[in-house]
Design a protein around this nucleic acid. Structure first.
Lengths: 339, 339
DNA sequence: CTGTTAGCGCATTCAC
DNA sequence: GTGAATGCGCTAACAG
């Protein structure tokens, strides 16, 4: 493997000059530049990244911490990040967290030493202590689908989204509307579900509908847990006529439970999800759409600006929209629902 | 940020000694080791990875090339890789390819220079030229869900899988069985679909069923293309009574088309997929199960062994199984199907 | 056992 | 404009 010295020797110049043409520094005579370029070509020379990094005192890599990489919404954001990083000089190293221990470990480890030049965190909100550590380590961090007052973040208004979803059901005439979401607080630091829950409550309140605890069920974020929770909801009397699930993943569990329990959707039960992952489209799930891929792209954009020394807004809010498909309809006019 | 020299100074030893305790070299007196450790602690010292990499002449990172990272089967394999890498000293950098240009570019770029110590390629089969380049660059490469005679790979027997799926349909009594898969050859170098097609043909042959060209439809790998292709199949006369889709993703498109066209599955139409992604389970799709996560883990395991200088088998074959769920059944006994 | 020294390959002064 | 020298922070070989 040729080094910069081999190139210098072959071109009959000093290593400094080679370095200059590599980083296309202006002050190199056209003729020498050409000679160097030829030598580089002849030797099929490529600068050693490790050496560059050490000399530059930059790692030229961005880290991304992702929770449950197989989660469809997470992987779409991740895709956005790879897209945003394309064409830049940065490599992307990924840290997949599936346990609380790993979450905490990565939050600590990635910070210290010079492991990455910048960090993107998906869907995980750092604690104040963690945010403090980032600041002290002077590591640029941007949050995607998570927030912290001290950290730049790309986010949507989940409270608003929760309201939109619930309002849609209310508008259809539902009065017994259940909410199915994540436990909060939770050790991972997921907060989206909680905010959507807040929106749910506000919509209820605004419509002067009673808040009933039995219609709010929470559990670990997964399709299977959601399935079980939905089954529990069906056992209430009277059962809800609509369910707002805090994510499409959970909505899928609800749909499966409904099918299993013999409920027809949307005739017997309306279901609305959140995120608008690709499968939602496919299944005709009514849901709240948010720009997943774009959130990753925006996150990268923020980080790049910070690395370039530019000022950035502390928060970027992406737009939300309700996508009405085939899982929501007016409630069946049963005896109980007649006012 | 403290360096190894600061630690040495504080501990009153040479940098060599600090380096030794860092890499827990045995030949360090317990007492000095302790002193060094204390200094490290006091300074909150962490070795600079870039410096280590340069000195060690190893990048301590593994690269992974993934096609269409949002593809469920791909991301499950990727998850396996992150799992397998956990606890090792390697970082994982990812290259997402969504265009042929990027595929070719990454195959070239990742190789040259000292960018990674090893490479894992998912679902993309290198050309002979590319394999040759890997060898010349003396870069360990392992293939997951792809194959090349000169490269260690983790694979399943797709021909066998194709036979199993088709055989299942034949056993149920189907005689007009369609195959829906990827175009082959294709610029990305995906080969799975083609092999599954080969299995399909063999099963037909074995059962002495006629091979009919109109029942074989190929297109770009996506749910939407599959949807359109399936619609085309329904227009054949007579239409097939069963469709074997080369992947679950494509099977989902078929299911959507069937629903749209008013076909009841499995009464009017049997559908079998391939991969057994999570959604297949959820939708009750009959499919060929392959160990996706394990394939990633095995891939890492192979690569680690190579990096450790151990011999490895050139091929690891993972087991396959047919998972019968709710999308397959005997054909409806219509006039045409009565022998 | 342990301190010293010489690289690893590149970027970047500083003179010329 | 360009060459030579210095340093990035660490590992490893070599003395002692």
């Amino acid at each position: 493997m040729a080094t910069i010295r081999d190139v210098a020797r072959l071109a009959g110049v000093g290593v400094g000059t080679v370095s200059r043409v590599l980083n296309n520094h202006p002050s190199v005579r056209e003729q020498t530049r050409r000679r160097v370029l030829e030598a580089i070509e002849a030797l099929n020379y490529h600068p050693d990244p490790s050496a560059r990094r050490l000399s530059l005192r930059r790692t030229l890599t961005i880290g991304v911490i992702v929770p449950f990489i197989t989660n469809p919404s997470v992987v779409e954001r991740l895709r956005g990040i790879t897209l945003g990083l394309e064409g830049t000089e940065y490599d992307l190293v990924i840290f997949n967290v599936e346990t609380v221990q790993n979450r905490d470990r990565y939050f600590k480890e990635v910070v210290r030493g010079k492991r990455v030049d910048g960090l993107i965190v998906i869907s995980l909100s750092p604690t104040d202590d963690e945010a403090e550590r980032f600041a002290q380590a002077d590591l640029p961090v941007v949050l995607v689908d998570a927030a912290h007052p001290r950290l730049p973040h790309v986010i949507i208004d989940d409270v608003q989204g929760g309201m939109m979803a619930t309002q849609h059901l209310i508008n259809l005439g539902h009065r017994r509307i259940a909410f199915l979401g994540d436990i909060h607080p939770n050790p991972f630091g997921f907060t989206a579900s909680y905010h959507r829950y807040l929106g749910y409550m506000q919509a209820l309140e605004k419509a002067e509908l009673p808040y009933e605890e039995k219609y709010v069920v929470l559990g670990e974020h997964s399709r299977y847990t959601a399935y079980a929770l939905a089954m529990g909801l069906f056992d209430q009397s009277p059962p809800p006529t609509a369910i707002f699930a805090a994510s499409d993943t959970q909505a899928l569990g609800v749909l499966a439970a409904a099918r299993e329990a013999g409920y027809h959707v949307p005739e017997d039960l309306s279901v609305v999800g959140y995120d608008d992952v690709e499968t939602a489209h496919y299944l005709g799930l009514t849901t709240i759409h948010q720009p997943l891929v774009d959130s990753g792209i925006e996150g990268v954009s923020l980080l790049m600006k910070i690395l370039a020394g530019e000022e950035v807004p502390n928060e970027i809010r992406l737009p939300l929209s309700l996508v009405v498909r085939q899982t929501t309809a007016p409630p069946r006019p049963g005896p109980k629902t007649i006012a």
